[in-house]
Design a protein around this nucleic acid. Structure first.
Lengths: 270, 270
DNA sequence: GATCATCGTATTGTCGACAAACATACGATG
DNA sequence: CATCGTATGTTTGTCGACAATACGATGATC
């Protein structure tokens, strides 16, 4: 009784004839994991909050089996922690964790930048354009005082930076690291209504990075990345003084009862 | 590296004096995942081999539920790939994957080395001693022609290097990367009984790294790490990581970045 | 009045079973 | 002879149920 066929699992689908993109069929586990990730990023699931399986399965409209499988993925990522017989919960970042996250980010983004610098001129220009767009979003958000949008644009910028490098593993690490970055901000702000911090100079910081990238100035680029991470850690963990261009605004999203949209599985679609 | 706090921290277990190590500290899912990881490292599960759930559950003596949860962790790590309705299988590394793995390893180990250089003299000396012991193992294995032991010592060296840096996230990434390294050697060697290649100069390469670490020669140390990875990729694939042919990989449009994005229509698609 | 033991409840961990879906093999048809 | 359609077998994906365990509350005892 021979097994029918190896699942034809080449690590990449680039072996396929480059005619049709594979139909986007994501498993339920993928959907569940991504939904929970998004809920964590959005702050609907604050750090340390316990996650009851039954309730969560009810809200998502799935059974406990797939839910548990999806949660295990997040456990592997470090976003969820598990204690035997006591269930799972959203991870909470200590000061040491925050420093560790940003140190890892520095390593990843540095490597991504080095790859970007080896890109051809058109590809690099396209990346620069995209990053510039994100910087503009940041500026607008900062001007409006929209802390949440500013934070989102910040994360999007760095995600785009790494994704543009075209490294699968760098991108995958970065995805987790960005969620942990969010968790860090959530964990570090003491008090539920401490609010986000709208840093007016955030856009300028990122603009400098884009400039260095455009100029292919490796030394400057890497130094900017390094100082960017260092500054973030200092702001989050170090009880550093609030600089002159730092103003705190009210958080738009305080602790709201978490509500997860049920994910509806489209059966029989193509 | 503090462990993230459990869901609802009731610190009641700390009352007991820790005479006994927690006996059942690892969940079944942990055990299953680790067992499969080990099987992959040992070569019992070659790249591309399909993994039938029923048979595997039978062998491990567990039900399909926990098995699937454990497998999902490995899917998240990238060690297992899944195709809907066709099951899971051990990932297979393409040449591009091999280059990607080593590039990521370069980033991680570089960062680890930088941290090691900031260590105090006694801690650094201890690390150097431990690494030296691993190098000796390498020498002995090379002399005996024990390819498997040589490979194991190689992986142990690099794992120790990163673990000594004391960064939780660097260590976690490294664990996966080392398994992927093994998978790379398996995937790249054509022919089932090709076996490992006994490189006599492997120990000397690592000894040079230890020397640079002992001398706190940052520039030399980082250069050695870099060349070490580059050489590995060249040996395995025959092409360089940072070769001029990097032009071939097209920068992805940053707006539609990764392959693993969930469908952006949560409710009632199509 | 405080502490300890016991009970009840809620949740997790695990298991077995059902059904949908894919792949393979075979047969029919041009 | 090649190709398409059909039937079948095996697998995964999903669900419900049972049991083990930890937590909280209540009552008894010193």
């Amino acid at each position: 009784m021979t097994r029918p066929s190896p699942p034809s699992l080449t690590s990449a689908e680039r072996a396929l004839p480059n005619r049709l993109a594979p139909v986007s069929r994501y498993s339920t586990v993928d959907l569940i994991a991504e939904r929970i990730r998004e809920a964590i990023v959005q702050g609907d699931l604050p750090p340390g909050s316990p996650l009851g399986e039954a309730e969560m399965a009810e809200q998502l409209g799935v059974s406990r089996g797939p839910l548990r499988e999806g949660m295990q993925r997040l456990v592997q990522e470090g976003l969820l922690t598990t204690v035997r017989r006591r269930g799972l919960g959203v991870a909470s970042m200590s000061a040491a964790d925050v420093a560790d996250v940003y140190q890892m980010r520095a390593a990843v983004e540095r490597s991504a930048c080095l790859r970007l610098l080896r890109l051809g001129a058109p590809a690099l220009a396209a990346t620069v354009r995209a990053l510039t767009g994100e910087v503009r979003k940041m500026s607008r958000a900062a001007k409006k005082g929209a802390a949440r949008q500013l934070g989102d644009a910040d994360l999007a910028f760095h995600r785009m930076l790494v994704d543009s490098a075209g490294s699968h593993r760098l991108s995958r690490s970065m995805r987790t690291l960005l969620i942990e970055t969010r968790l860090s901000t959530f964990s570090m702000q003491h008090g539920p209504s401490a609010g986000f911090v709208v840093r007016a100079d955030l856009a300028e910081d990122h603009e400098a990075i884009v400039d260095a990238l455009r100029d292919r100035d490796e030394t400057r680029l890497l130094a900017l990345i390094e100082s960017h991470m260092e500054g973030a850690v200092r702001r989050l963990t170090g009880q550093s003084v609030l600089g002159p261009d730092i103003e705190t605004l009210q958080a738009p999203v305080p602790d709201e009862p978490r509500e997860l949209d049920p994910l509806e599985l489209p059966e029989g679609v193509v």
